[in-house]
Computed example of a mutant assay.
Amino acid sequence: MSIKVPEQHAERLRELSGLAFTKGHGTGNDFILVADPANAQDILPEQVAALCDRHLGLGADGLIRAVRSETLAEGRAVLAENGDAEWFMDYRNGDGSVSEMCGNGVRVFVHFLVARGLVALDDGEALAIGTRAGVKIITRSAAGYAVDMGPWEFIFPHQADERALDSVVDAGMEVPRPGLSVSMGNPHTVVAVSEAVELDELDLHRAPVVDPVPEHGTNVEFVLPADPLVTDGVGAIRMRVHERGVGETQSCGTGACAAVVATRHWAGGVAAERWDVRVPGGTVSVGFTIAADGREHVVLDGPAVLVAEGVVA
């Protein structure tokens, strides 16, 4: 039996000896968080993968560094967009690859900054955070943190035409299904299912095959709309997700937003005061608002929890 992989992980973890970390999650979407204000700790992709390994490392869907925006090029770019974005969320998927944004991750990131005393944020106050998908505004809310996720858009614009062909998604079901590809700053392809048993029995250990696939790959969400879809002004869906570079996760914030965008589109633009999205790790809420530039923005609201602190041995 080969022990090559364990030896590699052990070496990568030894290279990070003494690194202080915090473990947190947003509706089960879990992260390793590292405070690195001066951008002095360059964590390599293979080191991220070793830390996030659930059997040989700490275990997480991704790793987030808290870096002052002025210390890295992407951060200086967001400062040019919004000078208040002092902190940059450097997010890596569990395999070490770079990701643009994470809706659950940015809530946990802000909660981490607050808990570490790096920022102060009272109920109802807002904070600007830099990400690779631009500046995000996070407000302290009753549920935890509400994130203005910015505008959404169809990745393949022709899909806005209900008569046009959607992407085709093969996830091991009897027949491939149509999917709608939506950008929330990162790419998503949303597929509707009609029965709870179909959603529950999906095998998401392997990545669904999407054709055509967005340029930088895609997360894939499978959605079961409630029946009725909207009750007392609240829409409701269930969702499971396969995240690129990670696999199935307990939740995906940007995915929940994309799932609501797609569901609303399929339902002919049905109105709701908010949408509750139930994922394996809990429930998040999604709403819409019109920004000053006239574009429709998506708002994601949900909890953030810090569960442990430690130091890499």
Rank of each mutant, 00 (worst) to 15 (best):
T71P: 01
A133W: 04
D42L: 07
T22W: 00
S97C: 09
D122L: 15
Y91D: 09
N39C: 08
W87G: 10
Y91Q: 11
A73S: 05
R68Q: 14
G75K: 07
G24I: 03
A49G: 07
A60C: 12
R92D: 03
Q41I: 14
A66N: 04
V67S: 04
L19M: 06
L118Q: 15
A35G: 13
N39F: 03
R54Y: 07
V67T: 10
L118Y: 15
D53P: 02
P45A: 13
H55K: 14
I43M: 09
P45C: 14
K23T: 14
R132I: 07
A85G: 05
A126G: 07
S69I: 01
H111D: 08
E125R: 12
G103R: 11
G130R: 01
G26N: 04
L72K: 01
D61S: 03
H25A: 02
R116T: 02
G28W: 00
E81Q: 15
A35W: 06
H25R: 02
A50F: 01
A35Y: 06
H25C: 02
Q41S: 11
G59C: 13
E86S: 08
L51Q: 00
N29H: 12
G130T: 01
A128D: 12
L79K: 13
A126H: 03
N29E: 11
N29L: 12
G26M: 01
K23N: 05
A20N: 07
L51M: 02
A60K: 05
I137N: 14
V119M: 06
F31I: 00
E125C: 14
T27K: 07
V108N: 00
R54P: 09
H111Q: 13
N93D: 08
A49P: 13
G28C: 09
D36G: 10
T27F: 05
Q47I: 05
L79G: 14
H25I: 00
A126T: 15
F88A: 05
A49K: 15
F112M: 07
G134F: 08
I64N: 06
G26Y: 00
G62T: 07
G28T: 04
A38N: 14
A115V: 14
D84G: 11
A35R: 14
H111T: 10
L33A: 09
A133F: 06
I129D: 15
L63P: 14
G57H: 03
T22P: 01
L33S: 08
A66I: 07
L58E: 11
A49W: 03
N82R: 12
A50P: 01
V67D: 05
R76D: 01
L121A: 15
N82M: 03
R68D: 03
V110Y: 13
S69T: 04
D122G: 15
L33R: 08
W87Q: 13
N93T: 04
A60R: 08
T131I: 05
D30C: 10
I32Q: 11
G124K: 12
E70V: 10
G24L: 00
V67G: 05
V119Y: 08
